[in-house]
Design a protein around this nucleic acid. Structure first.
Lengths: 187, 187
DNA sequence: CATAGAAGTAATTAATCACTCACACCTGCG
DNA sequence: CGCAGGTGTGAGTGATTAATTACTTCTATG
């Protein structure tokens, strides 16, 4: 039978999806070490024990979250790149920047990647976030054809955005904050 | 009597200094939540209990570490700015960039600021790191006379450096890593 | 020398953590 | 219906944590 809405239980795969999505918010605000599995469970509306049915351990869950965010980011880039295909490197980069600006509406998605960077000394997490940025950089290179310098500028701008978000500088009315925000698109 | 080297005990102020300096390394690698007061104590060569004689709690210690790093950074900028005083904004900014490149030799100093950014949802830590960047940005503005865009570029480059360091991308031999490193000075 | 007070710690506390296990409930299928 | 297997949890486990307490050792000074 096709999945009916009269079902009370979800399949494990559906639950995993829910946990993954809700865990983003938790990890984004308090990072890997600062987030407890109970908080994740509560956010997902399940018991803490069941988190361990869906993921072998906290580290695996965090790595899965990283990969989820990384994938969503690349999908957003792919959308933008498809529309700007064949134009000059600078134009494609600009389209990707636009995609990034729209992505930023969901602050948590980018903050998770920042948090992952901060927890990169944990081997499995370091591997995951490095792989994420490796894919990201090579994807941008492939789709834009831009040179090293332009790609670097693109990512530097991204990291700036992340920092502004993490500091809450996007909602602070002070010269230093608006200087860091200069020219950043937001929706 | 002037402080003799035959003393076995340090003064509390001396100890506080030592703890502050050694705690930088601990907090830099595992962040605020991930670092235990025992690790800090061990690194400083004192008992865990004595950490609480020198600082009221873990949060105050971390805030003190942030301020210590922030101060050292501004001192480095002040040195560089003094030498480049009176030259064009771009030249002063370049001198500050050079100072930053030399500062980066001590990875931990910058990583602490990155970790503080990630823990900025903790109110006291957020206040400290925001104040740090507020001072930093306004200092750079005052000493260079550069416009918003140039200052923003300067900090974006700094955040890029921090991320490269945190990822270990400075020692990775892969295209994505060297693309992110493009043109970055290092010593 | 005696002693006040500072330097320093071992031992402990209460809370919280990641993780486990035994068990209950639900659901599709023969 | 019966029952196999998937969904889900309550009630723990031992380890670790930030923070405290009660105590010892050192040292400057009168």
């Amino acid at each position: 039978m096709a999945r009916t809405s009269s079902r009370q239980l979800s399949t494990a795969d559906e639950r995993r999806e829910v946990v993954l999505r809700t865990a983003i918010g938790a990890f984004a605000t308090r990072g890997y070490y600062g987030t407890t599995t109970s908080e994740v469970a509560k956010a997902a509306g399940i018991s803490q024990a069941y988190v361990y049915r869906l993921f072998p351990d906290k580290e695996s869950l965090f790595v899965a979250v990283i990969e989820h965010c990384s994938t969503r980011m690349r999908e957003a880039f792919a959308d933008a790149a498809a529309k700007a295909e064949g134009t000059a490197p600078a134009a494609v980069l600009d389209a990707l920047g636009e995609a990034y600006a729209r992505l930023i509406v969901d602050r948590d998605l980018l903050l998770v990647l920042l948090q992952a960077t901060c927890a990169a000394t944990e081997p499995a997490i370091g591997d995951a976030i490095r792989a994420c940025y490796a894919r990201e950089v090579e994807y941008v290179r492939a789709v834009t054809g831009a040179d090293d310098e332009a790609i670097q500028r693109f990512f530097a701008r991204g990291f700036l955005c992340n920092t502004v978000l993490a500091l809450g500088a996007d909602t602070i009315d002070a010269p230093w904050a608006s200087t860091l925000r200069t020219g950043l698109r937001h929706y």
